[in-house]
Nucleic acid binder design. Structure first.
Lengths: 328, 328
DNA sequence: TTGTAGGCGTTATCAC
DNA sequence: GTGATAACGCCTACAA
């Protein structure tokens, strides 16, 4: 299957190669005659011509591709993020190159390297490699970052945390445990900080409350939740629905139930939350991805996107939270 | 930030550009002196040289990238698949370009087009576009395909279905309903066929049993499950854990429980299955992805991978299945 | 052992 | 209006 090039199209249309380039590049306005344009377009269609991306990239220095680095493709949240990012990218004629850091900074770094040699036009970095991304010297938008010196797009996790705490406090909980992320990335640090502030404001010392840190697998969450339960919290606030699901498993093992024995709250509103009837914070992962791409497109185009865009979140109260039980 | 090219490296090392290319391309063995090699490598390191992928691709016609088309990145199963594929690709110095078809054949097609102009070295097509992929004229491996005329890698879904049916039949179920996929792709057709055969072998007419078809969202599954429940099956076999989760929601709405009122079985063994205590079929998505990439690498290298590789699956019996209740 | 030169397919700057 | 022509950065015969 011989690749068809613009030279082939030119030959068939009876024009020069540069004319083909002009026409197909949309630069024909007021320069090339209607008849020639039509001839070129027909020849291209007949031959099934597809421009060679490598040649174009080499010549123009632009690849029409943006790189997206995520910490863990295995978490369902990133499916939504990717969907939103790809949708928006498509609208701009861009492709998204995804790199999974597999929760390993070294892999995140090597992923960034791979994107660099692939000559992507810009980067979307999710949590990972916020420092590393400074060295990219290419348009970059940081997702779920609080301090990067590039445009940032993030969820309003503080509002989410506050809404959940208010909900738990109103129900009467004071001994609120946390099953938190073991990864000290911005989004989780922001939650730590907000929990501390929010509880301090109502006279509760967050440092005296039980906390467990875990990786994002169901089993890790379950094990760490078991340890957390030994400290007898009346409610457990989780950094993620997967972690909350781990708590539910742990409760089952101990013969406890939510919310009778312990209230449980998650974060993200994954399918998991819906089926477990979990109180959680609904976040719009697609919007996050789409917004980030939009900002990056603007940046690549020489524009100045907002330094920070905050995507709102929403508390969803379901059946896993209730007043503290008498049983503990 | 000026891009550093091999010419810059050559100048700094005091050699010609072709020598640099030879050294950095690993073709120096027995041709370039040790001293020159060292000088080139040092110069490259000092300058932070990174070869330009577009130029290399243009010249060699190979991009060191393989394209992967999946029907729905939003389904957690694909996170695993992608993880496995990326891991294996990395081992071979390849990059995986992911395209999400968003359950829309047109988008799958345009995704394939995008990959084509990106000049990927080969394709991994998951369900989508099995016919379309014939026109690719590039090495292709079909995932979860039964009939493609390219090497296929698939899960042993027939064994999975049979194991689940045996399990349900042994428990005493005869009126086994199905919540099946609305997408008529090979993997789901294979399940349909196996259900029919397996039940016929024990004297049950599958056509007389209730079936509902649904898309892969929790809500769609729930709604279709409600309709299915009206036909009073004693057990429901689902094409996917997400669908099974939808059944559980429907049961809840009807005030029914599994397995007391209806037994429920899923497929995939997602986190969802674990937390819902769902009997299901465990499938190794990472192995599927890794195996497919390995086959594609072989194909690209001119090898002849097996026409079909079948990845084994395993029945996992949990608490959602039991003997038919007396209540119905 | 190393250098020269040609060309991959495209875009873009000039002449005509 | 259209057509030469020169890069873009790299690889790879072939020459020296």
């Amino acid at each position: 299957v011989a690749r068809v090039t613009s030279v082939d199209v030119a030959r068939r249309a009876g024009v020069s190669q540069s004319t083909v380039s002009l026409v197909l590049g949309g630069k024909a306005a007021g320069r090339i005659s209607k008849a020639t344009v039509a001839a070129v377009e027909q020849a291209a269609a007949e031959l099934g011509y597809r421009p060679n991306a490598a040649a174009r990239t080499l010549r123009t220095g632009r690849s029409a591709t943006v790189g997206l680095v995520v910490p863990d493709v295995t978490n369902p949240f990133f499916g939504r993020l990717l969907r939103g990012a790809q949708d928006e990218a498509r609208r701009h004629g861009l492709t998204v190159a995804l790199v999974d850091a597999a929760n390993d900074p070294a892999r995140g770094q090597s992923g960034l390297d791979a994107l660099r040699t692939a000559a992507v036009d810009g980067y979307l970095t999710f949590e990972v490699a916020n420092e590393a991304s400074r060295a990219l010297h290419a348009p970059t938008v940081a997702i779920e970052s609080w301090a990067a010196d590039v445009p940032r797009v993030r969820l309003d996790v503080e509002a989410g945390v506050s809404a959940e705490l208010d909900h738990l406090l109103e129900l009467g909980h004071r001994r609120i445990g946390r099953l938190a992320s073991a990864y000290p990335t911005d989004t989780f640090r922001a939650r730590d900080a907000r929990v501390r502030e929010h509880l301090a404001a109502v006279g509760v010392d967050a440092d005296a409350l039980p906390v467990a840190r875990t990786r994002f697998t169901l089993d890790d969450a379950r094990v760490n939740a078991l340890a957390l339960l030994d400290e007898a919290p009346t409610a457990i606030l989780c950094d993620d629905d997967v972690l909350a699901a781990g708590v539910m498993l742990a409760l089952g093992e101990r013969g406890l139930r939510a919310p009778g024995d312990v209230s449980v709250a998650g974060f993200d509103d994954l399918d998991l939350a819906r089926v477990l009837d979990l109180t959680t914070v609904r976040v719009d992962g697609q919007a996050l991805g789409a917004t980030a791409v939009a900002a990056l497109v603007s940046l690549i185009g020489g524009g100045t996107p907002p330094a920070e865009t905050v995507v709102p979140v929403e508390l969803v109260i379901r059946g896993s939270t209730g007043p503290p039980g008498e049983s503990r």
